[in-house]
Design a protein around this nucleic acid. Structure first.
Lengths: 139, 139
DNA sequence: TCACTTATTGCAAGTAGATTGCGATTAGCA
DNA sequence: TGCTAATCGCAATCTACTTGCAATAAGTGA
């Protein structure tokens, strides 16, 4: 884990605890967004003693600081979390069979925003875009 | 309610009941996707005697037949339902303040699909796209 | 029109994911 | 080392939704 992460946590008045470090460790080493309970299962495999509630609370805290991003995928009834740092604006594709999630690095929507603002008179703040389909293994 | 709707229900071996008719009535007269409990509240205002469970079951049944579409918006922890009929593929924009939801009729993503398939080797089945921001009243 | 079959309903209870209350623990600083 | 408040674990609670079951009623076929 990078020193800067610990610094950011301290800077916000929060503490770097054993459990928080473990949660961050899993998030940093996982390439796709994790649900709280998936993360909890990961920690159990690593023999980290932790309560599921603590995982929830840590994810919330890290989201509040801004270290972690919370997302909700379309055919998925739980929230997922991913590290923000070093990850630009991106979207996801998810396999309908095995649930595998991958990043999409392109975003074709920036140009579209002003058109939508004209049409709807909404002021656009953000967008979410997600594809689903079948991953190479499940086709 | 259109006769064809009743026919489709009968054709699938289901029955047109008082409650199902009421659920369909609300869906047909609402221009944005409703959550089961919003729909239930609507029916209560209309003095329709119905149990929330029945709303859930009817929405599920109508989804199974294919009359109704179930969607999940990004910062929303419940499912929403809208009539399928007469409504082409479209996306939504949602106000962060008041929750107002409007349809977006454009979809810029059809061209993108083959590019994503090449990049990820996924086979793309569907996508979801949603904007959030501030509606005219809340700006 | 009536009787029969079975989809549908209402009520109660159960799930899953997430949140909250509270007393015990511990990080981080003086 | 000792203090203070953030954090933790456990139990209880909450919300959205589902399931079980006995009672009801839609639609058919005589």
């Amino acid at each position: 884990m990078k020193t800067s992460v610990k610094d950011e946590i301290r800077a916000s008045g929060k503490r770097m605890t054993r459990t928080r470090q473990a949660v961050l460790g899993v998030l940093e080493s996982t390439k796709y967004p994790l649900s709280p309970l998936e993360l909890y299962a990961c920690l159990q495999k690593q023999n980290v003693a932790i309560d599921p509630v603590t995982v929830y609370r840590n994810l919330n805290a890290l989201k509040t600081i801004g270290l972690v991003r919370r997302i909700k995928l379309h055919h998925d009834d739980q929230f997922r979390y991913e590290m923000k740092e070093g990850r630009a604006h991106h979207h996801h594709i998810r396999c309908r069979i095995c649930g595998k999630i991958e990043d999409l690095l392109l975003c074709p929507l920036k140009k579209l925003t002003s058109m939508i603002e004209r049409e709807t008179r909404f002021l656009v703040g953000d967008h979410s875009l997600e594809f689903s389909g079948w991953c190479p293994k499940c086709q």
